[in-house]
Design a protein around this nucleic acid. Structure first.
Lengths: 258, 258
DNA sequence: GTGTGTGAACTGTTTCACAGCG
DNA sequence: CGCTGTGAAACAGTTCACACAC
């Protein structure tokens, strides 16, 4: 998951598109792009919603924040919508990005096709390991961290991706920001602090798994091993769990973790 | 970002912990683990909140859903809280996971230390490329997709990670589900459809960047001297009523389709 | 005094349901 | 009619502010 920061303080009312909507635009865009490639001329909110994995009411509401781009009784023009959403997201312009930390993940990101196809151009790969310098990854020579500031400036980079170990992330972040980067995508499992005006989003791979584990535990949890019946009548916890249960609790010093 | 699915339909009132809270528990856990390693005995909500990157009111509210684990006037016992949160997330048990698709990303995931340290054990690496079979990645031999069902069953895997190309994701997903997997973390940029009772979360690397681009574009705001790359797409046949712009914000030069 | 725990107010998001345009 | 666009209602999540336990 990712966390946004320093967005408009909810003050700006009129023009602002809700965060939740912004977060879904890329989803719509992807679905629309697929339709476009199949030369589908128009879609209804129902069809597009299904393709994007949301419900149609939400989709229509989302689009209503962008303007009235549909045709009643017909649907939306695919090409036109692709353009409008791309523009809204700022994808009609070129975004040079740098990736710092070319380990497994950094390399994966450098190779990821989804970037280039959305207007993101990997302007440079940077790593602290001098022995990597000059070696190509995804067709781009890795450069040493020493040149970070220079690279940012020369390439006009405003978006940086941090894929370093947690220990170096804040330091890299500081340098990126000092050099002019104002948006950071952080893959390191650490909280970055940045000055006002800099946007940080984070992706933590293990957090997602932990959230799945939580739900997985609940599934197995109470009701017997079998449970594909629709009505979730039974309450989740009851047995092995805590919570302010009237009269219970108090198992203070318990088994400690590893 | 990631999207949950098939969670309790908001029907269950009392016992449920809010999704938003669940999503933050791993964050607290990480901060607490760091404190624990430094042998810090207790933390106040204020301190812990800062370390986790949230505000203290939110943190206290979150913890209140778990129970009353703090001491007024003092704070929270670090070790105790680590244990309680781990238990709540289901991390006190072992979660074998399989990773399907051992490309750059799959390899990065296999090597990612954040899994093992949280109770996730990579039970198997699976790839459709027969030439990878038998080769070790992160110390584990990659196995061929043919054995997928067998592996799942033998290892009792209930969580699967999909890191294949988009084109194979749904197919892999179907096989995982058929074999008994009930939680899926999807890195492929596609919407997976799963039966009721199966949980899917997704992480789309390019979506996060697109959201950053959106905000970045707003920062640059008016003085955007740059030029667009893509030529406008085809306009809809019908005239479109662009949303009424509140005069202020410079409207985009309507470089739209002629 | 200090900092938790929590009702109450508030803000943001989703869903409903239907008016009205094509 | 069919499907969009959107107020209004319902719901979820966040913030406030303070009583109260330690």
């Amino acid at each position: 998951m990712a966390t946004g920061r320093n967005h408009r303080p909810a003050t700006t009312r009129s023009r602002g598109i809700p965060e939740a909507t912004v977060a879904r635009l890329p989803l719509y865009l992807r679905a629309l792009t697929a339709l476009s490639e199949r030369s589908v001329p128009t879609v209804s909110s129902e069809e597009l919603a299904a393709a994007a994995g949301v419900n149609s009411a939400k989709l229509r509401k989302d689009f209503s924040y962008l303007g009235s781009y549909g045709t009643r009784g017909v649907g939306y023009d695919v090409e036109y919508l692709v353009y409008q959403i791309s523009r809204e997201l700022g994808l009609t312009q070129d975004w040079p990005v740098v990736i710092v930390g070319i380990g497994n993940l950094g390399a994966a990101l450098a190779n990821y096709g989804g970037f280039a196809s959305r207007g993101f151009r990997v302007a440079a790969l940077i790593d602290a390991d001098a022995s990597l310098a000059g070696k190509p990854v995804a067709g781009i020579d890795v450069q040493h961290t020493d040149r970070l500031e220079q690279i940012i400036e020369e390439s006009g980079v405003s978006i940086g991706v941090i894929a370093t170990p947690a220990g170096s992330a804040q330091q890299v972040c500081d340098r990126l920001v000092a050099a002019g980067v104002t948006s950071i995508l952080n893959f390191a499992p650490t909280v970055l602090s940045v000055p006002e005006g800099v946007d940080v989003r984070k992706v933590d791979l293990s957090i997602e798994l932990q959230i799945l584990a939580f739900h997985e535990q609940r599934k197995a949890g109470e009701d017997a091993p079998e449970e594909d019946t629709a009505p979730p009548a039974a309450p989740p916890a009851a047995a092995v769990t805590k919570r302010p249960e009237p009269g219970s609790d108090g198992d203070r010093p318990a088994v400690m973790p590893a």
